[in-house]
Amino acid sequence: MKMKAITAFLVFLVILTLPFLVSAVNGDILSQAPQPKLEKAKAPAGVENKCVEEVPYMRANHMNILKTARVQVVRNGLREKYKKYSLENCFTCHRNRAEFCDKCHSYAGVEPGCFGDRGGCHYANTKK
């Protein structure tokens, strides 16, 4: 009776404190946010050396931009209008998937939709 009660209590304790337990087992109490490495290309003269949108906006919304551009270009043929957002353009700076994309993507547990395994199109520049 008492044993049963204690077992039940412990089971629920473990389930409820799972996030804390996991992070304890997970180790590296001082882990920091991933730092993606950027190998920037030299901008041509007279062009500002920066991304197509502000960095904070890109962090949260790059997937929408990429997806919109893909649909508009590939399905609706608006290549000129969305030239600014072409993936080729991105690849000039963001050229290394492992050092740039995957740093955050594996941290957040999100599979990037651009490449490889499931439904992605781009294999170039995607050395893991």
Binding site: P19, S23, N26, S31, S106, Y107, G109, V110, E111
Partner: peptide, 18 residues
């Protein structure tokens, strides 16, 4: 949401999330 609690997201979790 569990992926927010793992330093490196386990493959199984990432797979489900995908």
């Amino acid at each position: 949401h569990l992926r927010f609690f793992f330093k490196t997201t386990p493959a199984a979790l990432a797979w489900i999330t995908s």
